[in-house]
């Protein structure tokens, strides 16, 4: 009897737990989710349509085709742009993870004259809009011969104030005892940072890597300015050229965009578990 009665009691209890506030929250989350996922679904849907079907707004194409994918992938330019974006986003991400955390660690764990001033100076650069910096960046690239090169695309983002700030805040949560223990064990400061401090801020590193990669993978404004030859286009710049030069080929743009989301999804899928683990660890601490 008890065994039979238990589930129904549980159900009743669960029903009681469904409060109106929760229903509202779930509804809002559902609507939010729908708003987020609809463009993505339409992107994939349009990529499976032929040129004539593009303005047929049905979510499921009447006559789905992979021709667009074959066309895009057989077009050497697309693969080149994809490679350019991959090189730029990867290099900038690695650079940010390395330098932002190195500077963040220094500001968090070393006491030296002017430390606070340097931190403020770095932070203050966050208040300068990119649009204001584009001309000096361009002039600099031009003088250094970096126009239309990978260096030219990458150099403004190789280290960021946001990343430095993020890493400094995380390194401050690493107890000094770990660092001092390593000092007593005979490690030099660089090895302490690399071997001890870095593994302890993996969630922050993952977050920084995801933000940086996404930001650079989708970057449009600066690459458009600094790059002149079609071979050096990054993917967003290249995709936009479908719209300018050959009227608007929505099915091609959407196919390119669909392919372009693959690396970002991969980066997120690989790194997100570290973020989740970090959140869990932070919850258990102390």
């Amino acid at each position: 009897m008890t065994a039979v009665a238990a589930p129904s009691t549980e159900l009743a209890a669960n029903r009681k737990n469904i409060r109106p506030g929760r229903v509202v929250a779930w509804t809002l989350l559902f609507i939010g989710g729908l708003v987020m996922i609809t463009p993505l679904l339409y992107m994939f849907s349009t990529s499976l349509k032929s040129a004539g079907q593009v303005y047929d707004l049905r979510l499921f194409p009447a006559d789905p085709t992979l021709d667009n994918y074959l066309r895009v992938l057989s077009d050497g330019r697309f693969l080149r742009w994809f490679l350019n974006s991959l090189i730029v986003a990867t290099a900038v991400t690695v650079s940010n993870v390395f330098f932002d955390s190195l500077v963040g660690y220094t500001l968090a764990k070393f006491t030296f004259r002017g430390r606070y001033f340097i931190f403020l100076a770095i932070l203050s650069t966050l208040m300068i809009p990119t649009e204001m910096l584009v001309i000096p960046w361009y002039l600099m690239s031009s003088q250094l011969g970096w126009l239309d090169t990978y260096w030219g695309i990458m150099f403004p983002g190789m280290m960021t104030a946001f990343g430095t700030f993020l890493m400094k805040q995380f390194f401050e949560t690493v107890p000094d005892d770990f660092i001092e223990a390593a000092r007593v064990d005979g490690l030099n400061e660089f090895t302490i940072w690399w071997k001890i401090a870095m593994p302890m801020v993996t969630p922050a590193l993952s977050a920084l890597a995801i933000f940086t990669f996404l930001g650079n993978w989708t970057a449009f404004f600066w690459p458009l300015i600094v790059v002149t030859s079609r071979e050096m286009y990054t993917l967003p710049v290249g995709l936009s050229s479908f719209a300018v030069e050959q009227s608007i080929q929505w099915e091609m743009i959407m196919t390119g965009a669909a392919l372009a989301t693959i690396p970002t999804l991969l980066v997120f899928l690989v790194l997100q578990r570290y973020i989740v683990r970090g959140v869990m660890l932070a919850g258990l601490k102390g």
Binding site: P175, D177, F178, E180, V184, D185, P199, M200
Partner: peptide
């Protein structure tokens, strides 16, 4: 010298 800390300071990773 070798030191043992109050918070153990053993590396979690």
């Amino acid at each position: 010298i070798a030191m043992v800390f109050q918070n153990y300071a053993i590396y979690p990773h």
